[in-house]
C-alpha cells in the first residue's frame, strides 16, 4: 500500500511516500533547492508559499519514490495543530487529490506524528514507552501505552525548549535558529561556569522562561547601548551553562517518568533531539537506569511528512478515514 503524506502545519512544506511502513521518500522544502527553481527566496511561513511549494514538493516526493500519483492508495495530511492558514493549504490539496483519484484520505495530529516517527527507524520498538517531544513549539512527556493511547504526563508551563534556544541565541547576537549554533559554541565552554536555574516544576512539568530571564540578566551585565556586547563576556561559557540547564531538566524528567511509569523504553522526538549534548546525556542516563533509548535521525526529528504518512497509514489500518468536510484546527490536544 502506497501512502502519500503531506505536512504544512508551520514553516516547512513537506511530502513523503511510504510503501506500508517503509519510507520511499521524505522531502522537506527548506532542504531542497526549490526556491531557486520556483522564484527566489521567500518567507517560508506564508500560506501562499506553502501553496507555491506544495505541488513541486509532492512531485519531488513521488519521483524520488519512483511512483506516480496513480499509484497512491491513501493520502495522510496534518490537520491539527498548527497555523490555520498553513494547515488549510495541505488539507485542501489532500482533499482535492483524494477526491480526484477516488482514494481515501485521513487527517493526522502533528504531535502523534512526531512520536510515531521513531517507529520508521525502529519498526520493532513495541509498546509501552515514554516519549519526550521537544521542539520549538512543544516540550512534553507522554506515556504511550499502545498505538493511539497517549497520556500527557507533563509539559512546559511557559516556553518550549527549542524556543529557549532561539531566544538565548538572540540575546547573545547569535543567528536563528539558535539550536545548532548554541550546540556548536557550547562545546568550547564550561557547562559549570554559570549556575543557571533548572526551573524545577512539580511532577513532569517543565519551565524554561525563568532560565531565559536568568541568561538575559547575566548578559545584561555585559551589554551597553552604544557598544553592544562586551568582549569580556565568555559566550561559550554562557551557551554551555544554558544548554546544561536545559539538558539536565529534560534528561532528569524523562528518566524519572520512565522509572515511575515502569516502562523500559524511551523515545525522544522533535528538533531539540538533534542537540548533541542531549543525545549524549540521555544515552548515558538511560544506560545507567537500564532503559532502552530510541533516538531517530535528524530527518525524522524535524517537521516532516514521513511521520504523517506513517501515522495516517496506521490509523487507516484500524479502519479510520476522514470525510471531505474535515476542517483543520489550530489547537487540539493529542
Amino acid at each position: 500500500m502506497i501512502t502519500l503524506g503531506i505536512e504544512t502545519s508551520c514553516d516547512e512544506t513537506a511530502a513523503a511516500v511510504l510503501r506500508d511502513g517503509t519510507v520511499l521518500s521524505n522531502i522537506v522544502s527548506s532542504q531542497v533547492k526549490l526556491h531557486e527553481q520556483y522564484g527566489g527566496v521567500v518567507p517560508e511561513l506564508a500560506s501562499r508559499e506553502h501553496l507555491k511549494n506544495l505541488m513541486p514538493v509532492i512531485g519531488e516526493a513521488l519521483s524520488t519514490a519512483s511512483v506516480t500519483l496513480k499509484d497512491v492508495d491513501l493520502i495522510a495530511v496534518t490537520s491539527a495543530p498548527g497555523l490555520i492558514g498553513a494547515l488549510l493549504v495541505g488539507v485542501s490539496v489532500a482533499k482535492a487529490v483524494a477526491y480526484s483519484l477516488n482514494i481515501p484520505f485521513i487527517g493526522v495530529h502533528h504531535g502523534e506524528g512526531h512520536i510515531l516517527a521513531a517507529h520508521l527507524e525502529y519498526p520493532d520498538i513495541g509498546y509501552p514507552y515514554v516519549a519526550l517531544l521537544a521542539s520549538g513549539g512543544h516540550t512534553a512527556l507522554y506515556h504511550v501505552k499502545e498505538f493511539g493511547k497517549y497520556t500527557l504526563l507533563g509539559q512546559t508551563r511557559d516556553d518550549a525548549a527549542g524556543e529557549a534556544f532561539d531566544k538565548v541565541a538572540k540575546l547573545l547576537d547569535l543567528p536563528y535558529p539558535g539550536g545548532p549554533v548554541i550546540d556548536r559554541m557550547a562545546r568550547q565552554g564550561d557547562p559549570r561556569a554559570i549556575a543557571f536555574p533548572r526551573g524545577q516544576r512539580e511532577g513532569y512539568d517543565f519551565s524554561f522562561s525563568g532560565l531565559k530571564t536568568a541568561v538575559r540578566n547575566h548578559v545584561a551585565l555585559f551589554r551597553s547601548k552604544d557598544k553592544g556586547l562586551d568582549p569580556s563576556l565568555n559566550i561559550s561559557d554562557v551557551t554551555a551553562s544554558f544548554q546544561a540547564a536545559v539538558v539536565d531538566t529534560l534528561v532528569e524528567k524523562t528518566v524519572k517518568a520512565a522509572k515511575e511509569q515502569g516502562v523500559s523504553k524511551v523515545i525522544v522526538a522533535g528538533g531539540v533531539a538533534a542537540n548533541s549534548s542531549l543525545r549524549t546525556e540521555m544515552e548515558r542516563s538511560c544506560k545507567e537506569a537500564g532503559i532502552a533509548l530510541y533516538l531517530p535521525g535528524m530527518g525524522l526529528c524535524i517537521d516532516n511528512a514521513a511521520m504523517i504518512a506513517l501515522t495516517g497509514y496506521l490509523h487507516y489500518q484500524q479502519g479510520e478515514r476522514s470525510e471531505l468536510d474535515l476542517n483543520p484546527r489550530a489547537s487540539m490536544a493529542l
Binding site: 508551520c10 495543530p81 498548527g82 497555523l83 490555520i84 521542539s135 520549538g136 513549539g137 509539559q155 512546559t156 508551563r157 511557559d158 516556553d159 518550549a160 527549542g162 524556543e163 532561539d166 531566544k167 522562561s209 489550530a330 489547537s331
Partner: peptide, 13 residues
Amino acid sequence: QYITSPTFTFVNE
C-alpha cells in the same frame, strides 16, 4: 491547565 508561550505557534486559543 497549561497556558504556554505562543512564540512558535503564533496563536494559542
